[in-house]
């Protein structure tokens, strides 16, 4: 069900002195959609996401989730959002199960709720064996899986995933895609950043392409195709749109 805009980003900018990490980005994400933020390295994807999470303060412009300002009303916003960072780091001396429990308790869930919600998820992601290990000993993919469980624990209306499949093996990637589709079908919204174009093409209903901090293109796959008036793949669209801002020889 595509409903009212859940995420409203209006003229968002983040400037460090003379460097513009994000410049004048405006986006609308309706609830129930799967939204992909595409861009090359250094385009400003992670910066935008961190501004949505209230970790960074916008230099100008606003970011709102469910009508609440992402920085001023960050506590309320976080009740509605689950976040998966690019490279999650956990406490050295906690086991996976303890981290999940801590995360659940901090979101106000009871013990029973936590156990109930994690059992299925953990089995699908094949984290069972590893839960009793110290998180510091996890490989990169396992940390991502653990962070994903923590993000989904409180059943948030919006999932914000920063490069979610980075480090996941093919099995886990497929499970992640299934999960994303299930969430969207249930009316939740998924917002993720990636530079894997085929993944975005398969999953998403809406796409935004950023490069060098600016929004290069925005809309559904059909709209983007219409813009270039050709029946191209996302890859070709990406290169033509993002490549305008990037200079350098084409390989």
């Amino acid at each position: 069900m595509h409903g009212a805009p859940l995420v409203e980003i209006a003229n968002l900018s983040k400037v460090y002195g003379s460097f513009e990490a994000v410049k004048d980005v405006s986006l609308l994400v309706s609830s129930g959609t799967i939204f992909a933020l595409l861009g090359p390295n250094g385009a400003g994807k992670t910066t935008t996401i961190r501004m949505l999470m209230g970790i960074l303060v916008p230099t100008s412009g606003t970011a709102r989730i469910d009508g609440l300002d992402c920085f001023q009303d960050r506590v309320e916003v976080k009740r509605r959002v689950g976040y998966l960072p690019d490279e999650p780091v956990f406490y050295d001396y906690l086991r996976g199960s303890e981290i999940i429990r801590f995360s659940g308790e901090m979101h106000g869930l009871s013990q029973e709720q936590i156990t109930e919600r994690t059992v299925d998820l953990v089995k699908r992601l094949e984290l069972n064996d590893a839960l009793e290990e110290f998180a510091v000993n996890y490989s990169k993919g396992m940390k991502k899986k653990l962070a994903l469980v923590c993000a989904m624990l409180h059943d948030p209306a919006l999932l914000i995933l920063d490069e979610p499949t980075n480090g996941l093996d093919p099995f886990a990637t497929r499970v992640l895609h299934e999960l994303i589709r299930e969430k969207a079908a249930a009316g939740k919204t998924v917002f993720f950043s990636t530079h894997l174009l085929d993944q975005a093409e398969k999953l998403c209903s809406q796409i935004a392409i950023v490069a060098k901090g600016r929004l290069a293109a925005h809309g559904t796959l059909e709209q983007l195709r219409a813009r270039l008036s050709s029946d191209s793949t996302l890859e070709e669209i990406f290169f033509s749109v993002a490549g305008e801002s990037n200079s350098g020889p084409v390989p």
Binding site: M53, G54, I55, V75, E76, K78, R79, V81, G82, Y83, P85, P88, V89, F90, Y91, S103, M106, H107, G108, C150, A151
Partner: peptide
């Protein structure tokens, strides 16, 4: 907290 501060910032608490 070192690098784990990010997780504390995802919780609905100041």
């Amino acid at each position: 907290e070192n690098k784990t501060l990010w997780q504390l910032m995802t919780f609905p608490r100041e």
